[in-house]
Computed example of a mutant assay.
Amino acid sequence: MTRCDKTGELRWVGPADPLVRPLLDALAAEYELRYGPNDEMNTTAPADFEPPDGGLVLLLDGGAAIAGGGFRRIDAATAEIKRVWTHAAHRRRGHARTVLVELERAAVGAGYRTIRLTTGPRQPEAAGLYLTTGYEPKYDIAADPATLPYLTFEKVLVGAAADAVDPHVTAGD
């Protein structure tokens, strides 16, 4: 599905789409900068982001991916959001929130009722985004984040199936 909103063009793509690679490479570099050498980018199979159980959305500006994220199946009622990311040159403009809202819409459309996600303790901007968009922390928020291996969040999705958007259908086609 491709649709435009005030922040740019939202495009649902497959994991092998050439627009995805630059964003994932930048994300891997940032993980290494924040956490040192790690294997985080290899913990999820690209096929997990394929329909009907998952999806990958990019926010494009001038044909280039400036933000993106994906979701995948945990179980019949629960999706996991992964790889929400905004290019460093485009941060602090609400792009991650736009991607997150689109992922939630798609998860409802795919039949999921709950979303789980994790972020690292050295990503306070991500934790802030999830807290301000209705995600419930599943960790002790009074604890020093640096003492935790990761921060887990969960959100119960609302919205009737009739209001859901199928992420794999292009509007106007």
Score class of each variant (00 low, 15 high):
residue 14 G to K: 14
residue 109 G to R: 00
residue 87 H to T: 04
residue 92 R to D: 13
residue 21 R to L: 11
residue 23 L to P: 00
residue 128 G to E: 10
residue 160 A to Y: 08
residue 87 H to K: 01
residue 62 G to T: 04
residue 81 I to D: 01
residue 115 I to V: 12
residue 16 A to P: 08
residue 89 A to R: 11
residue 81 I to A: 01
residue 32 E to Y: 08
residue 47 A to T: 15
residue 128 G to C: 01
residue 114 T to P: 01
residue 158 V to Q: 15
residue 47 A to V: 14
residue 87 H to G: 00
residue 106 A to V: 07
residue 29 A to I: 06
residue 111 G to K: 00
residue 154 E to S: 14
residue 96 A to L: 03
residue 54 G to Q: 00
residue 48 D to N: 14
residue 149 P to Q: 07
residue 57 V to C: 12
residue 113 R to P: 02
residue 58 L to E: 06
residue 40 E to Y: 15
residue 160 A to M: 08
residue 97 R to G: 04
residue 160 A to P: 02
residue 22 P to D: 03
residue 47 A to D: 15
residue 72 R to D: 01
residue 46 P to Y: 02
residue 18 P to Y: 04
residue 55 G to K: 02
residue 151 L to M: 06
residue 36 G to K: 07
residue 156 V to D: 13
residue 41 M to V: 15
residue 69 G to H: 05
residue 62 G to I: 05
residue 27 L to P: 02
residue 159 G to Q: 11
residue 94 G to A: 07
residue 97 R to V: 03
residue 113 R to A: 09
residue 20 V to S: 04
residue 139 Y to I: 07
residue 30 E to S: 13
residue 94 G to C: 09
residue 116 R to K: 11
residue 81 I to P: 00
residue 19 L to Y: 03
residue 107 A to P: 01
residue 63 G to H: 01
residue 87 H to N: 06
residue 134 G to T: 10
residue 161 A to M: 11
residue 139 Y to S: 07
residue 141 I to Q: 12
residue 87 H to S: 04
residue 34 R to I: 05
residue 47 A to K: 15
residue 36 G to V: 11
residue 112 Y to L: 08
residue 91 R to I: 07
residue 23 L to N: 00
residue 162 A to Q: 13
residue 19 L to V: 11
residue 52 P to C: 06
residue 162 A to K: 14
residue 128 G to Y: 12
residue 154 E to A: 11
residue 149 P to G: 09
residue 154 E to L: 05
residue 139 Y to N: 09
residue 161 A to S: 12
residue 70 G to I: 09
residue 143 A to T: 07
residue 144 D to Y: 10
residue 20 V to G: 03
residue 157 L to V: 00
residue 151 L to R: 02
residue 113 R to D: 07
residue 110 A to Y: 06
residue 72 R to L: 06
residue 112 Y to S: 01
residue 99 V to I: 14
residue 76 A to W: 12
residue 90 H to D: 10
residue 71 F to S: 10
residue 149 P to E: 08
residue 103 L to A: 10
